[in-house]
Design a protein around this nucleic acid. Sequence first.
DNA 1: TTGAAAACTGGCCGATCGGTCAGGAAGGAT
DNA 2: ATCCTTCCTGACCGATCGGCCAGTTTTCAA
Lengths: 181, 181
Amino acid sequence: MAATPVRERTRHEIVRQAMHLFQDRGYNATSLQDIASAAGCSKATVLYHFNGKPAVLAAVLEPAAADLAGLMDSAAGLSQAEAQEFAIQQFTDLAVRYRGVIDVLQDILPVIDEVPEIAQLVADGIRLTDLLAGSDDPLERDLAKFAINGLLGECRHPGERTDDELRKLCDIALRRILRSA
Amino acid sequence: MAATPVRERTRHEIVRQAMHLFQDRGYNATSLQDIASAAGCSKATVLYHFNGKPAVLAAVLEPAAADLAGLMDSAAGLSQAEAQEFAIQQFTDLAVRYRGVIDVLQDILPVIDEVPEIAQLVADGIRLTDLLAGSDDPLERDLAKFAINGLLGECRHPGERTDDELRKLCDIALRRILRSA
DNA sequence: TTGAAAACTGGCCGATCGGTCAGGAAGGAT
DNA sequence: ATCCTTCCTGACCGATCGGCCAGTTTTCAA
């Protein structure tokens, strides 16, 4: 019965269907009409609840962005070595939990800086790179970026791998490339 | 001078400008009009020389695709260990030489199977993954895919790194993740 | 029951896309 | 100079996109 207002029910369904469509076809290839049809409402309704298509994207990414932001807060004050181990473990977790959402980011990368709605997410992602690097060495920082790119790509095609398989793969890959224990 | 027919001169300029635009804004975000304006001709001229937008993409990727195909031929008959070392060296070379072109692929990945014009390039890319894996172990094959994804992402933003820096980075990253000598 | 607020919608708009076509301009061999 | 081929273009087309708005339906507290 839910004291859930009508507003939240529709919003939630729109976000849910948008996530599925963004995963399947990518953000750019998904139209507001596609989202509306999948959610069982009109395109105008989508725009009634969200202030434009980028706002829908931001809502889809919001849970992951919030978790990442919290993760970054928790890492404050750790030593470089501690932070790297922390980042490997937590980011692997995050990648598995939001594997579908991360997939969505791939389609946005070329124009990610033109989407102000997710600026905080992008900023936290860059900070995460620093943590993963575990050092100020430019080479190690590049390798950390390399690792993140690899991981982003590997989260594609959900369903082809179980969560545990993906977790193991991410953990091994990150530790190999970052040369962590 | 130049036995170069008019045809080839215009075609070449279109491909050259298309490559730049695909790099800067991505394939999907580049319109035929953008390409035509940059090449100093009309959109109709672009479509006179190329049978549709995907054909322009195929022409941009053609040199890299040809080199990759040749590389795969050379690898035939090598043992798994030999092939892995061969793949690491040659693919690093290829990535550096065509760093801009590889960047273009990023924007196409979600719908790459819907572009028949570059099917051979895709097929060779998959075979390359097998070579890099150096084993039939599914984990190693996934790690090879992980490495390729990382490398694809790292070829972005040309100009931020010199060719030598990129070569070194790719070599180190591939060897770490593939645990090769 | 009623009336205002919230939720929702069909229809329309301007812009942009890839692509087509009839016909003009340029070039070269004769 | 003639003529045919190659090269090129402006105008146009249908489709689709994100977004907007006037107006209708639904919800719910009073």
